[in-house]
Every structure is written in structure tokens, then in C-alpha cells.
Design a protein around this nucleic acid. Sequence first.
DNA 1: TCGCGAAATAAGGGATTCCTTAATACGGGG
DNA 2: CCCCGTATTAAGGAATCCCTTATTTCGCGA
Lengths: 302, 302
Amino acid sequence: MTLSQLGAFVFVARLGSVKAAARALGVSEPAVSQSLAQLRRHLGDPLVTRSGDRMELTEGGRRLLGIAARIVALGAEAVAAVQPGRPARLHVVMDAGLAEYVAGPLLCLFTQRKPVDATTGVADTAEIPLLLTSRLADVALGAQVTGDGLACRPVLRCRLIVVGSPRGRRDHWLVGPSAADPASDTSRLLRLLRVQEYQVRVFANQTAAWKAAAEGAGVAPATAHLVAAELRKGELITIDTPATPLATYWYATTLDPPTRSTAAGTFLHFLTTPAATQIMRTPDEGVPRSRFRPAVHVSIWS
Amino acid sequence: MTLSQLGAFVFVARLGSVKAAARALGVSEPAVSQSLAQLRRHLGDPLVTRSGDRMELTEGGRRLLGIAARIVALGAEAVAAVQPGRPARLHVVMDAGLAEYVAGPLLCLFTQRKPVDATTGVADTAEIPLLLTSRLADVALGAQVTGDGLACRPVLRCRLIVVGSPRGRRDHWLVGPSAADPASDTSRLLRLLRVQEYQVRVFANQTAAWKAAAEGAGVAPATAHLVAAELRKGELITIDTPATPLATYWYATTLDPPTRSTAAGTFLHFLTTPAATQIMRTPDEGVPRSRFRPAVHVSIWS
DNA sequence: TCGCGAAATAAGGGATTCCTTAATACGGGG
DNA sequence: CCCCGTATTAAGGAATCCCTTATTTCGCGA
């Protein structure tokens, strides 16, 4: 299985004919046909079959096409990547809760200061070691992570509390998507308090969970500084529990220094600056009143 | 540049030595060394240099490693993909607004009914044709999309309105992330109403924007059926504007039938079922009161 | 300075790749 | 039925890949 064979397959599948693919690739028709034949032999699937005037994908071919297209694209990217002078790439993964509040402002500020091409993504804590060691991500923000070859350091001290409404019900727990991550602080708190599954209601985002808590639908775990405004306005009140306030940290995890990318090192250093700390504490204030359109694009699928 | 050359490079980079890589790959040491040499020659970069007892990545090598690792992983995946019997994969991309509310419940319901491995992602409307034709996505949900080889059909009729608080200010427009997509209905509405950039404040999610609107911080465009509860409770009121209510549709876009994957076809059919329509209209009710943990994982980066 | 471990290079051989031209199957329209 | 456009197969040749063993180079510590 060769990159060029996969490329030939992608061209045939996209253009719907061997002839067109051959013309597009600038080679003879049998050249494409043979690449295809070898790929077929290697994978044991016809991949494309001729049906009248056009080539039709088999089921296996359809499954392969997406993957093959990505491989071909990455092959071209690989060549471009080693050419010097291009901006460094930085992939930051984080906890769902952090992503919702601090991802935008933080990366926005960082890319303003350094010429890097930054992307963000959301990942479960359990996936983080793999994402880092496989270089699919450069930095992970969220809960503490331990692993061979990984360096994990605290970047922000914070307090986990439980909030609700004065006369709201106390038997429902309203949580954001980070509760689906068993290693998140939210999950840890729920376990400490022995909250049962049936008492938990998961919302699509943290904001919605806190809003429901303010309406009295239940109580919600919260990072204290992120609900400071609601507490001040009295929309939410702190609910005392045996486990809260729970002192915890946000951590940044990267590969160990020798294998760490320079962009990751730079970002790690940036996280210790006052400006970064400030924006993690009060991400709202970092969002300009005018349109907030970060130069950060979240793309999809590894 | 060969898949096996990239594989050798990944092993050397990960294990920190040619010797270890050779042992891990079950070949002789020069075999690895030569693969590396050819890759170096091809790319014009040393990639890894020996520094005392371990091999150290060059800057270009660091940039390559992530890409090479993905290529190698995809190569293995490609082989596995054409083997029959594995569950079909379905990648659904959608508008940021849709993703926030309906992605979870909708995919949750779909995967309960069909044995597919579904992932979701967020994309701008402008990216959708490319994502579909390159097979990075199978189905796109959101605004209408036209393109060669694409089939776009309406799946849900809805009304776009503007909401706010009775005595809230009217000079600020509070929008979710979908406003960053110039082709979204939200953006279209803002243009119709000639809203200026400085009047717009973008929130990290739609829920936060509506919450701010309820608090009187401004007015917000909204899909009527998604704010029905807030309107009923009186937290939000409909604000009349010259352009609203704006009748519009949510569309589903796929490749044309001949090139469409069967999983995409199945999903498209599913979208027309009453259950799917129901869940798009009232996504909240689809979220079970108990813990909602969809078998849908959003992975990252193309 | 020598030795030692590890990486790189040299040389060679078998397999594969990748391209060509020429010939052969296949399928639909006249 | 034959024609014609398209895909496939056949055959051959140059290049590359990928592995081996043997040798050389390199960096570092004794």
C-alpha cells in the first residue's frame, strides 16, 4: 500500500473514472488502473467497480475513501511541514468546562502575542496521555494527568463549590459535559458526595447547568471564580456540603522537555504570565465588547 | 516518501534511538537508519540528530512527527476499514448553534437505533462543501449549502425571532458562536437588520447569549422553538423587528446519492422520522433525567 | 590516546513500484 | 450485430524500496 496508490484511488473515486484520474494525474490510463489493481489486491476489496459510464464505490471503498483522502492530504502537509519559516502549530486540548470558558480568550490572547497557528479541542482526561505522546496535541489543560514521559504542572489554583438557588430543590445535580469525564473535578466531587446517577442531569454546556441551578432546578458544582458574578448578583448562592469548598488546581500537561515542541514550551511559559492568569480567572472580561472572533479554529477528527 | 519510512521515523522519534526502533520493528539497525536517511534526503531536513545518548528532533522533525504519526495510524486504519463487518462510521458536522442543542440528543437517538460509530463536529458553512466532497464529513446540518455534487434538503422548518428582556437595553446584540459564520441564519438576520459590528457581542455559547438577553444586556436572535420555554416563563420576550419572524429551514447536506455513503443515507432517512423531528424541536426533552452520556465522541483535527 | 557503543554508509540482492506501449475484455448505442 | 469508449491485463524496463552483512564514522568516557 503506497501513498501514490492511495492517491490514485482517491482521484478515481472523486472523478468517477480511471481516464479522468489519469488525465488529472498526468500519467497513462493503465498506470492508474494498475495502482488501483495493486491496492485492490493488497486490501482484498474491489474498492471501485464500473457500472455503465461511471465508477461506483463498494462499501469498503466508501469507508476507505475518507481515510485515504486524509492520508494523501497529510502526505502533502508533511512535506510542507518541514520547510522552515512557516508558523508553528499548537494544538491545545482541554477539559470541556475549561473549553467553554477560557479556551477562546486564552488562545486569542496567545495568538495575538506569538505568531502561532493555534487550534483547540476537547478531550477526556483519559485520552490525554495518548493525544500528547502521539503528538496529536501539544498541551492539555484540565485535571492532573500522570504518565510516562509527561510533565504536568499546576497553572491555576481554584476552588470548587456547589451553587444553587435559595429555594431551589436540592435533590438534583445539574452538571455540564465535563461530568462525563470521570477524571474531572466535577466527577470527583460527585463521587465524594456520593451522588447517585439518577440524581444527575447533564446539560449540553456549563452555562445551561448553572442557569438551571439559578432557576431552582437543582444544585450544580461550580468553579468559584467562574460563577463569581452570579454569586455577587445573588442569582446563585453557595450551597454548603461536606466536601466543599474543594481546593483544586487546573493543570497543564505536556511532553517532557526533551521531546516537547517549542510551541508547547512557549505556551507553557505564557500560562504563567499575569495576563494569562488574569484571563483564566475572569475570562469574560477578556472578551471584547465588540465582536469576538478569535483566529483560532477548531477543526475536527483525528 | 513511504509509509514505512514515516513509520520508522515515528519509532525513532518516540523511542529516542535507532537501535530501539529497529528492535521494536523487528528489523536490523541499518534498515531503520536507511529509511531515515531516505526520508531525510527526500525532505531535506535531518529530522533527528544524535545528541550524546539520545536522538533529538530538529524543529522540522517536531513538526513532521505529529503528521507522520497520524499518517501511520491512518494507514493501519485504512486496512481495517475495508474489512467487512465493522460498524459504519458517520461524521456529522453542523452549525455551532445546532451543535449546542441538538447534536447530543439527535446522535444519541440515532446510535441507539442503528449500529453506527458516529462523531460530530462543528464547521462553518463555507467549509461544508470541502468537508463533504473530501469525505471528511458524511452529513452536514445547518444552513442551505449549494455545490457541485451536493444534495441539500430541508429537514426542519423553523422561525428566527429576536428576544430580549422587557426593560433590557436594545442597542446591544448578543449572539452565540454561530454568528461568526457569515452564512448562518443569525448572521443573515444581523445583516438584514443592518446591525453594526460594534453593537455585537459574541458569547462562547448560545445559552450564555440568551441568558444575558434575559438579564437585559441586549437583544438576541433566537430560533423560536429553542427559546419556547423561556418565552413561556416570561424570562424572555419577543422583540419585534422589521425582519422577524424570519421563516427559515434547517438543511441537511450530503453528497449526491451515487457517491453518498450508506450511513449518510440512513441518517438522512432518520432525519425525516417523527422521532428525529421531535427531538430537533424539543431537544431538552430528549435528554434523559438521568445521566446523559452519549456514545458519541467528538474528536479533533482533520 | 584508545576503546566502546551507536549511528551512518557501502554493497548487494530480491521484491515492489511505477511507468510505458500493445493487446484484450466489457458494455451500451447505433 | 458491430462500433466505440472505457477499463483491464500483459509484458518489459528503469527506478526505488527494503532488507541483509560488513565496514566506517562519530561522540564520549576511561
